[in-house]
Structure formats: structure tokens, C-alpha cells
Design a protein around this nucleic acid. Sequence first.
RNA 1: GGAGGGAUGGGAGAGUGGUUUAAUCCAGCGGUCUUGAAAACCGCCGUACCGCAAGGUACCGUGAGUUCGAAUCUCACUCCCUCUGCCA
Length: 424
Amino acid sequence: MLILKDIRKNLDFFKKKIKSRYVNNSDSLLDSLISNDESLRKNLELQQNLQNKRNSISKALGAHKDKGSDDFKKLSTEVTEVKNEINKIETSISNLKKKIDETLYTLPNIPLEDVPVAEDEKGNVELKKVGQIKKFDFKPLSHDEIGERLDLIDFETATELSGSRFSILKKDLAKLERALVNFMLDIHTEENGYDEYNVPILVNTKAMYGTGQLPKFRDDQFQTNNDLWLIPTGEVPLTNMVANKITKYEKLPLRYVAATPCFRLEAGSAGKDTKGMMRQHQFSKVELVSIVQPEFREKELEKLLKSAERILELLKLPYRVMLLSTGDMGFSAEKTYDIEVWIPSQEKYREISSCSSCSTFQSNRMKARYKTVDNKNELLATLNGSGLAIGRTIIAILENYQNKDGSIEIPLVLQKYMSKKSIS
RNA sequence: GGAGGGAUGGGAGAGUGGUUUAAUCCAGCGGUCUUGAAAACCGCCGUACCGCAAGGUACCGUGAGUUCGAAUCUCACUCCCUCUGCCA
């Protein structure tokens, strides 16, 4: 959530920046926000003056000796009038607050200066390509073809159990998933300095507001019948751990890693990636979250990207890094790098990780603050990145490591986790 | 699931309708003293909002209510603890 005080001070800047994120009617949205804010503050002042009056009359009434005197009765009538006025003002105050919150909750984060301005993914900028794309002397199969041929993926039975967009991994592929989770967690904890956590994958509504999934993206989420939500990413529980807390600056930075299942309704993705396990309702992901002082956030984003890249490097999978444009970035992000891995059957790079700085956007929503050296309370900066999406890593390994005879070579770094060198 | 108890500022803990706009202790910060430190003593020490400021307002788990006035009374909800049942 943007900081209202900042918008008030710098309206034109915010208008320009919100417009650059292709929000409809952004100018009039911000204008009405500011006018609501002005009348709210006028009403607050009025309310406070009346409350002050009420308090002092009440005090006088309390000190009064003769509760039957004319003076006492006069004051009583007066304070009743004041009370009625306060009630009226309180109604308009709560209406204004509601309107202001509604607007603030739907405005996206302000992009950093170096983020390219464009309406969609066409404006994303390729920053680098890493790794050699393997030339096959046969036509490489897609991961779902490989999976079915080796009898390691069962889409049909999964559909019988749960419907479309689910899959069952069997035998060596089930083990590969477990191997990847362990491998990634080991690298991030031992090499990259993140602390491993095991977190709930059901969270309450407050937490979903905190990281920005609600109220805007309700239709993308799975909800239980007791007001809990299945997390769409480990970012939600990990980041919300600092909600409503004042962290001491000595404890910063906080760096968390967790492997969790993720659940996405994929509403609005009808017809997209319907074959295979590219886009599922449920998938595993190893998530990295950093909580830092705002001045260190850009540096921390680079560390996050590097940590995620390290996994692909070790797996020897070809990838490229994209800087997302203002229109393609997620709602809470001020700057996002996507890592895309090479998918031979599609002859395309596809997203396997997304690393974002959310500046104080999430911390403002969840009141996550820290105590500065000079004892002031300031909002923290939050960052998150996938390190990596497990399902898509499996796809990338199956396709990039396939041999002509149909077998799959296991990447060197995974062999000790799999206790074998190939799958056939 | 059943029965009972509880939720107060970083921690401990008083306060059950009107000098409590929350006592006191511990921790923390600043100072005096000291060669330095400790001890002792003095001062400061929750959060948010409004206001140029002086100052004001709100917050005692959350939400509603009673009252001229609520940390204190009423109702609902959430969470925690003890006992108990069932169960991974």
C-alpha cells in the first residue's frame, strides 16, 4: 500500500508513476483520494475538538457535588448535544476512511526509475543470456511426452482425483521433486545465507491483505470454508512473519527460505499451457524472502537474483534474465527480474523465477517496522524471489537432459540426492 | 468436542465506573561521580493520528453496546493456559 502522506506531498509525481503502470482512470482516482483525505482530516479535527469538550464537561460533572442542581442538569443537556454531534461526525469519518482504504488497496506500487515503461511483456528488457542451448540430433520431446513414455507422470488419474491442472509424479520423478527441494534448500542455507523455515500453507485473510493478494486478486485464490486461504506462494507466510512487529535494527537483514506447495486458481488462464505441468493448480516452490532497511533494498534484490541464478548455474540449465516493464510487473513490486529457463520443445525461454523488491508497499499494509539506530520506527522493505519453482525445474531437466534413447541424465549436483545418474 | 481460567506499554505486574490522560519493578537510553568500569544518585523511556506550534485526540486482545464519563459494566468474536475426550 502506498503511503498516503507521500501522495499528499507529491501528487503529480504519483500521478505520473501510477499512470506508467497503466491503471485505468489513475488521475481521477488520485484526485478523489486526495479530496477524501482532506475532508477526512477536517472531520478529524472537528471530532477531536468535540471530544475534548465532552471530556472536560464530563470531568466537571464528575466533580459536581450536587447532582440535582440546575447547573448539573444544564451541563448534562449540553454534553448530550455534543455527543450527538460526535456520533454524526464519526459516521462520515468511517465512510471516508473506507473510501480512502478502498482506493489505496487497489493502487499498485511505484516503479523504480530504471524500470522500463511499457504496457505489457513486450516491453521487458533482456539483460543477459547464460548457458549454452543444447543442439539435439533428434527432435526433443516435450516433458509430458517424456513423462508418459517413461511412465513417470500420470495426468489422467490426477484428473480423476482432482480435475484439470493437476498431475501425479511417479517413482523416480517423485524422487526428483524431493531431490530438487533438498538441493535448493541446501544451497540457499549453506551457500547463500538464508534461514530455513517450515511455515503454514493455510493463512488468514489478514495475511493475504498484508502481502497484497487481497482484496484485488481474490479470484486467483483458493479459499477454505473457515476463512483461511491456501497460499499462492511461500512469500505470504514468510513475509507476514514480521507483520505488526517492530524489529530491532541489529537483527536485520532477515533472510528466509522455505519450500511450500503453492495453490493458484489460474482463473483467466483458460486455454493457456493446458498441456503438461507448466501451469497447475498446485505446485511446489522454494521461496526466498528478505527483510531489510529500505536503503539496502536494491542491493538485496541483486543478491536475491544471484541466489536464484546460482541454482540454474549448478543445474547447468540455459536461462536468461529479464527486467520486467511497468505494465508486466506484479502489483506489489517496484522492480522485478524474471529468470526464464530454456524449454527445448517450445524453443522458448519460460519463467522459472521472479525476484521482486516491494519497497515499503507490503510493510505499510502489515505495519512491519524496525527501530532505527536513533530509536525511530520506520517501515521495512520486503523482497521475495523464487529459488526456484520446482515443477518448472522438473520440466526443464526432463527436456534439456533427454537422450536419444529416451533416457534422462540426472544433473551432476542432483546425483547424490537421487543415488543414480540417469532415469530410464 | 466438554469444563474452567486468562489477555494491560520491550518483559514482569497493579488497577474492577470519575486526580490512572495506566502505579511499581526489570531491561534500555542520557547524565552526575570515577583513571576506566561497577555501585549509587538524577533524568528520559509505548503506538498512531491531527496541528506551523502550543497543544489535542485515540488505543489496556478484536468488534459492537450501556453511560455525562469505560482498562474497569454488557454482548459477540479471536487467541492463550489448565484439566478432559478423540486422533495424526
